[in-house]
Amino acid sequence: MPTEVEGTHQIGDMSLYTKTWKPDGEPVAKVVFIHGFSDHCNRYYELFPDLAARGIEVYGFDQRGWGRSVHKESEKGLTGPTSLVISDIVSVIKSHLPSTVPLFVMGHSMGGGEALTLASDPLYADLMKDIRGWVLESPFIGFPAGHVPNSVVVFFGRLIGKIAPHKQRWSGLEPTDMSRDPQVVEDIKADKLLHDTGTYEGLAGMLDRTAALNEGKVKLNQGVRSLWLGHGTADEGTSYPASKKWFERQTDLEDKTFKSYEGWSHMLHADLPENRAVFAKDVGDWILARVGPEDVKAKL
C-alpha cells in the first residue's frame, strides 16, 4: 500500500509544507505537483494514492501563501511576484534532482498556468532536460465565459498592487463551479485552509501570466519534450476553449496530447466519484508510457 510522508521544504526563512505519496517499493517515476489558487496539496482525493499504487511517487507542496505554508494571517495569499512564485517551484523541483527515475511536473488550474510559465521561461531553459514531461489539469490559460473580470476593476487593482502590493483581497470562487459532486462542494465550504485571499501583487501576477499564455506572448522552451493537457468541457473555473486554442498553437512540440472530458467540471480529480479513477488512470497511463518498459512492466 502507498504511504504518505509529511515534511517541509526550506527556502530562506520560508518553510513550505510538503507531502509525499510513496509507492510500495521503488518508484518508476516521480511527479512534482503544483496546486491551484486557494488550494493545498491534501485536496486531491484519490489521484495521488492511485498514482502511487502504480509506482509513481507524488511530491506535493503548499505554495507560499496557501494551505499549511501559511503560518499567520498576514501570509494568506502572500505569494510575492511571479519571479518568486516560479523560483519557489524551481527550488522544489531541484530538490529532487538528480533523479534516478523520470521526473514529471503536474499543475492544476493556477498551478497549471505556473507550470507553463516555468516551461516557457528562458531563465530556466537548462532545467527542461531534467523534466521528462508536463501534465496540465484544467490549466489557467483563460477565464471561462461569463467570468472575465471587469476591466475597470482590473485597472484599479493593478494600481493598488503598485502602491500596496501586500494588501489582501478576497477573491473567492463558487464551490459549485469546482465540482459536480455535492460532497466535494461541501468539503470546499468546510475546509478552513481554503481562505480565498490573494494580495493585489499576487493577483496581478496571476492575471499577467494568464494573459501572456492566452495571447501567445510566451513560447515553450525548446527543451520541453512531452506534454499532456486535460480539460473539462463544462469547466466554470478556467476556460476549456482557451486551453484548446493554446494547445493547438504548440506546433513545434511533437509529443503532446489533449484530452477533453465531456461535461466534466473544473476539478477533474474530484469530479463525480465514478469519474475520478478514469482521470487518475489517464494521467498514470500517459506517464508510464514515457518510462522504460522494463521499469513499468510489473505495474501496468
Rank of each mutant, 00 (worst) to 15 (best):
T82L: 14
T82F: 03
S83W: 09
S83P: 05
V85P: 14
I86P: 02
I86M: 06
S87W: 08
S87Q: 13
S87I: 09
D88K: 11
D88G: 11
D88I: 07
I89Y: 12
V90N: 01
S91F: 01
V92F: 13
K94Y: 08
K94S: 08
S95N: 13
S95Y: 05
S95I: 14
S95L: 03
H96K: 15
L97P: 04
L97G: 11
P98C: 05
P98R: 04
P98K: 08
P98Q: 05
T100N: 15
V101F: 13
V101H: 07
P102D: 04
L103E: 03
F104R: 01
F104G: 03
F104D: 09
V105E: 11
V105W: 06
M106S: 10
M106H: 06
G107N: 13
H108G: 01
H108S: 13
H108F: 10
S109C: 10
S109I: 07
S109R: 09
S109K: 01
S109G: 14
M110S: 02
M110W: 00
G112H: 01
G112E: 01
G112I: 00
G112Y: 04
G112Q: 02
G113Y: 09
G113E: 01
A115R: 01
L116K: 05
L116G: 15
L116F: 02
L118D: 08
L118C: 04
A119I: 07
A119Q: 08
A119N: 04
D121S: 14
L123S: 09
Y124L: 15
A125Y: 01
A125W: 03
A125H: 13
